[in-house]
Amino acid sequence: MTVVDTPPPLPVRDKATAVERAWGGVSPMLTRLAAERATGVLVREGGALHLEEGLVTYAESPLSLGLDALLTAHGTVRAEVWSEALSRADEHRGAARFLLAGGHLTEGALQVCHLGALYDAAYFALAPSSTPGRFRYGVAHRLGPVLPVPVAALERETLRRRDLLHRVWPDPRPDHTPLVRTHTAAAPRPTARQQRLLDRLDGTRTAADLARELGRQAFHTLVDVRRLAAAGLLAPRPEPVPAPGPATSAAAPAAPHPSSAPHPASAPDAEPRRPPAAGAPPPALADPPPPGLTERLAQHTTDPHITLLKRLRDALEAL
């Protein structure tokens, strides 16, 4: 009674994520740069972190609003004032100095907005990535130091934010897929802030688009989006029934967002009726896997042991 069947291969996790998880930090490279008190810019897949003497002075990400966008979106600072301050900035005096000196906003307001934007962008910049980061020495950001943040504090906060989102609603798909409005009986009444977000859902806008249009921090928008998803008031747009040929329309909206890359469970693969790739075993038509499970891989196996192991792995990773 020798079992000769080769079990289906176990899913391979994104290597970068696995290494980082085992190490217990977010980016070993960043930790090293902090230790050597480096100045420059760390460019990662999801964004960039600017360091000065090993402290983070600025962060940017295509998925979040920069300090300039946050300050100009609601008229706190006019766009001309911002660009003028940037153009006058040099090595010794950053743009922040000119904004404060011109009386355009108080130091407190600048610090609050700056820290908000910094942690917001860092959340996306430090997201698990599939490519290694690159560091360019010697380029300090033109804003100049406002309130530099230690790397350890930034990493801790980023991990805490991941946990926070996971606790609100464990399915990460609403973070980067276009969203649609859903209706459920006895849903809680959304707040005025959430209502303005719901009003803009049209099946094409993602959370990042909504944050940009509303002039809000992107992570704050993700918290709202996950809360509304948990309440049943919005959902990731369901994929259209696949037509023969390349499904370009389905993949296109998610494409500009680098953070969607490291998630193997992104929406196009989650469609159970999608024709399997050539040579793959027939897809399992069992009940849909719980959120967080790598749906794509679940399609290829019906072995209950494998399913159990994968559930266990996901549960452990979620700890």
Binding site: L70, L71, A73, H74, G75, T76, A109, V112, C113, G116, L214, G215, R216, Q217, H220
Partner: peptide, 10 residues
């Protein structure tokens, strides 16, 4: 609660 002219919740 602090009322800011930009979007925040502090």
């Amino acid at each position: 609660f602090v009322d800011t002219s930009f979007d925040s919740s502090v």
